[in-house]
Design a protein around this nucleic acid. Sequence first.
DNA 1: TTATTTTGTAAGTATACACTTACGTTTTAA
DNA 2: TTAAAACGTAAGTGTATACTTACAAAATAA
Lengths: 197, 197
Amino acid sequence: MARPNLSNQRRAELVPVLARAFAELGYRRATTAALAERCGLRENQLYRLWPNKKAMFLASIDYLYEYTAEIWSRLLNEEDDISPAERILNWEGEHRGETGLHRITFAGLNEADDPEVREALKRMYRKFHRFIIGQVKAHRETAGSADHPDATLTAWSVIALGMMTNITHELGLLNSKAQGKLFQEVGRLLLEGGDDK
Amino acid sequence: MARPNLSNQRRAELVPVLARAFAELGYRRATTAALAERCGLRENQLYRLWPNKKAMFLASIDYLYEYTAEIWSRLLNEEDDISPAERILNWEGEHRGETGLHRITFAGLNEADDPEVREALKRMYRKFHRFIIGQVKAHRETAGSADHPDATLTAWSVIALGMMTNITHELGLLNSKAQGKLFQEVGRLLLEGGDDK
DNA sequence: TTATTTTGTAAGTATACACTTACGTTTTAA
DNA sequence: TTAAAACGTAAGTGTATACTTACAAAATAA
């Protein structure tokens, strides 16, 4: 044999670069030439690491979750006097949209008639959903809030808020103060639930 | 002179067809050839009605609001024992995503670095926002609920829910029952507000 | 009728882009 | 040392696609 295969490692190094490219350009405008240039490679070198452009995109979708989960996990381990759920809410209210990586979801939704892209997006949303459900339940146990709406709906709603603040940030529809208020105020209402009827 | 110019009328007839094409295919894959074919025209005939493909897309964004507002307005004028806001909530919970036209927003967000597309989307969201604020206020006046969060935030949250149910519908993440529950239950919580703290 | 404008049909152009081929250079296990 | 595999560089290929040109047919105000 000869020369160890470093493909896995190189893929791991390059995915963040690809993800950023897809985020900035969208799927179609992220040409293979542009992707290669940002990676500091030639096109065919990229094609030695992934079979085609779509595979590069799918890897970027997975990366989006991993990146976010990594940040949230760090928040969970911080010492603080408010609940982890609230910490995440606060953090997202302040920083949502900053990386621009969320645009990968826009690109993905735009390609969602492709079965593999659909599946990658579904996986991603489900993982976020699970993560958030865990936090909602934990928060409600310690804070003893009303459980309307149930954790599942609440988690979807939180994701919805996240999506919306991404959009308002993207389009400049809300300034960052209003964006934070939206996320935190409505997020808290959802977390703590409504009146028991 | 000779032959009256029917361009305005033809544009009005064709925009729904274009909008559907952009919705089904996304911006990039909606090729001018495909657009022309669905309109039953040749490409250059389309180019006699709009200066370029982007203009066709911008017209489709505007149409998306008009189409939805038209439906909502009809709901407002119905006789019923629940408030108009709740009627819209119920209707959207049941029918959201059915037309597929919402995919135009996915396509638009994916092209949002183009200034004209950005502006068209901003206009669209602001119009929806205004419309919904009106309904929220009207509902709260008659129903006299707690006023957290304020109407502006509530309206953005309702739009967020709409976006989310579009996505879950698109990806098959929720069945239609769960989708309706999400829209109606959380929508109502937002409308009626939480406990006064 | 006739001059003028719209409408229809067909073909073409220039470019961008996903993906490939070819070939030389470097690295490392044996 | 050497064979095999990884890595680097350059150029190419076929196709898709936004937009154009050219020209004939139809319609209508004068």
